[in-house]
Design a protein around this nucleic acid. Structure first.
Length: 571
RNA sequence: CGGGGAGUGGCGCAGAGGAAGCGCGCCUGCUUUGGGAGCAGGAGGUCGCGGGUUCGAUCCCCGCCUCCCCGACCA
């Protein structure tokens, strides 16, 4: 490709609203153009990088037997009613009516349509395993967009779906997909970690997320410090080892005055004990009912874990009015004297004796409160949030470390939730009708590009790996428009590089050399070849890797230039 | 959904109740040519939209729209 025929509209300055590195560089490099909040056009440079990403994904999907399909963005709402998600997936689901007043949605994901595709043809265990995938546009109307392509409303996703006859088959498909994902991310220059995750609104059982650890991410990921252990999970899912207090004989409850004390910290300080000797009471509303959630004072509640414990209903913090209407005294609240139906407890709260708790009376607390004797809960489980420094539960010792991360991929074992709802069934070996075991697997292509920039850049621009940079090599002809020798050599080199299959851009624009160098660096041309009167005088052409300093170029004789470029590309 | 901020040529910004400006970019010509060149001459704006106040509003007032950032959190 010749730069004079390409659409290069780089700028020195990025729009003020561009906060993240990837947003700035992708905008300045004319890869993307914003149209509305969370809605972008992809420009020619961006298109080239995304095409390369898509091809890497296709190769890896095809390698595990995936078959590419395309499913519709616009779908009748009725199929969402069939799966039961029409009413549970409300905010992100963009709806409209067509001219016949038929209710339509813009697809945010494709479990429904792929289930319909699956049930059309899967009749026998012999039809499986089957993996279908597509690379296609999604729309989610809820998420607050941010960071350029990092989080958008309209986005392209590679979504794959597996169909298997049983749980073992699903495990095999899931594991093959996990390996394919590792391959994809490493080929795109990303060191992504696979961590356990909550399955959220997609549903299903096991799920894992692939995260690029980066401060610009909006995900929180915890990993075990021990390399041997390797445990990792996102915040919604992460478990940790709860350190129990030393066991004690239960003592008599004592009520005592605590004027002005409202917080756990104040209470623990006033009594001269650690926060682990206290019980914290927090109020959540779940389906219009106020619940008191009890957790040991040194831990925090993880809402996602509460949702899962309560069967998927969305908890939210109760309002001040709801709390007082339910008869609780904020600041001095506890589960003591509360009907256990409305009490949810973290296991940390029930495993420790003689704790401090609110007296449900303004200005009073209780000493020596004990589970079962003084209060009870119908729902008990792990609902505590892990934070940096907590001990790993997997290896019983090492500390958990907390990171920010960009979620670049997510894989789920759906099992039979969609096949049951959507009637995807097959005859097993014994001739019995069984639901299909499904899995689903997603990668956001645009986010992957943005993440790759977050992970590969310097102060001059992007340093994307060869595999996903828009071009592999740029040949810069210095003043080639008015120097025949330079022009002929640059043209010849351009031809030779193309002939050996290297994706090359010839910068034949009438621009000052500095402008061409600045653009090559901004866009992140992996290898730069300079042809100029000076290079010719020095014996040939200059070859430089993008990551090398501007002074670190090497001169190569003309007939050795192509092998030198190939060697540098492959290093 | 809550809180904060911002809308002025393609991009970055300034501006004042009375004839819309600067830098970058763009066009033409000349000069220049190794890290975003110089000179000269040009093109390009419904000052987000609607209403109000005023002799006069891009500026003041009211309403709306859009975009960005932060928070989605413990009583």
């Amino acid at each position: 490709m010749r730069a004079s025929k390409f659409y290069i509209k780089t700028t020195r300055e990025a729009p003020v609203e561009a906060e993240s590195i990837s947003h700035k560089y992708l905008t300045r490099g004319s890869f993307i153009q914003q149209i509305a909040a969370g809605i972008f056009s992809i420009m020619p440079f961006g298109q080239r990088s995304l095409d390369k990403i898509r091809n890497i994904i296709r190769e890896e999907m095809n390698a595990i037997g995936g078959l590419e399909v395309t499913m519709p963005v616009v779908q009748p709402r009725s199929i969402w009613q069939e799966s039961g998600r029409a009413d549970t997936y409300i905010p992100p689901l963009a709806r409209f009516s067509d001219r016949r007043e038929r209710e339509m949605v813009l697809a945010p994901t494709h479990e429904e349509t792929v289930s319909i595709m699956g049930r059309y043809g899967i009749a026998s265990h012999r039809d499986m395993p089957l993996i279908l995938y597509q690379i296609q546009t999604k729309f989610r109307d809820e998420t607050r967009s941010r960071g350029g392509l990092l989080r958008v409303r309209e986005f392209e996703m590679k979504d794959a779906y597996s169909f298997d006859a049983d749980a073992e088959g699903l495990d095999a498909s899931y594991n093959a997909m996990a390996q394919a994902y590792h391959n994809i991310f490493s080929r795109c220059g990303l060191n992504a970690v696979m961590v356990e995750a909550d399955s959220g609104s997609i549903g299903g059982k096991d799920s894992a997320e692939f995260a690029l650890l980066a401060d610009s991410g909006e995900d929180t990921v915890l990993t075990c410090d021990s390399n041997a252990c390797g445990y990792g999970a996102n915040l919604e899912k992460a478990e940790f080892l709860k350190i129990r207090n030393a066991s004690e004989i239960a003592k008599e409850v004592e009520k005592f005055a605590t004027p002005g004390i409202k917080t756990i910290q104040e209470l623990a300080t006033a009594e001269g004990v650690t926060e682990s000797k206290t019980l914290k009471a927090v109020f959540y509303t779940i389906e219009d009912q106020v619940y008191v959630i009890v957790i040991r004072g040194d831990y925090e509640v993880n809402e996602t874990k509460v949702r899962n414990l309560m069967g998927g209903a969305g908890p939210r913090l109760a309002t001040r009015d709801e709390v007082s209407a339910a008869g609780f005294v904020a600041g001095s609240a506890s589960a003591v004297g509360i009907d256990s139906k409305y009490v949810i407890a973290d296991d940390s709260a029930v495993e420790n004796a003689n704790l401090l708790a609110g007296a449900n009376e303004e200005g009073y607390h209780l000493r020596n409160v004990n589970f079962r004797r003084d209060w009870d809960a119908d729902q008990i489980g792990d609902i505590a949030a892990a934070v940096e420094g907590h001990k790993c539960r997997r290896c019983d010792g090492a500390s958990l470390r907390q990171h920010r991360g960009i979620e670049v991929g997510h894989i789920f074992k759906l099992r039979t939730i969609y096949s049951d709802a959507m009637n995807v069934k097959f005859n097993d070996v014994g001739g019995k009708l069984q639901p299909v075991f499904m899995g689903c697997y997603g990668i956001g292509t645009g986010r992957l590009l943005a993440a790759a920039v977050e992970a590969n850049h310097d102060d001059r621009g992007m340093t994307l790996p060869r595999s996903i940079a828009p071009f592999e090599v740029v040949v810069v002809g210095v003043n080639m428009h008015n120097n025949d020798e330079v022009r002929e050599l640059a043209e010849s080199l351009y031809q030779q590089l193309n002939d050996v299959g290297i994706d090359t851009l010839l910068d034949d624009r009438v621009e000052a050399p500095g402008a061409k160098f600045a653009d090559a660096d901004l866009i992140g041309m992996p290898v730069r070849v300079v042809v100029s009167p000076r290079s010719i005088q020095n014996g040939g052409v200059e070859v430089k890797h993008r990551k090398a300093a501007p002074s670190e170029s090497t001169i190569h004789a003309v007939d050795e230039a192509v092998p030198a470029v190939q060697a540098m590309l492959n290093r």
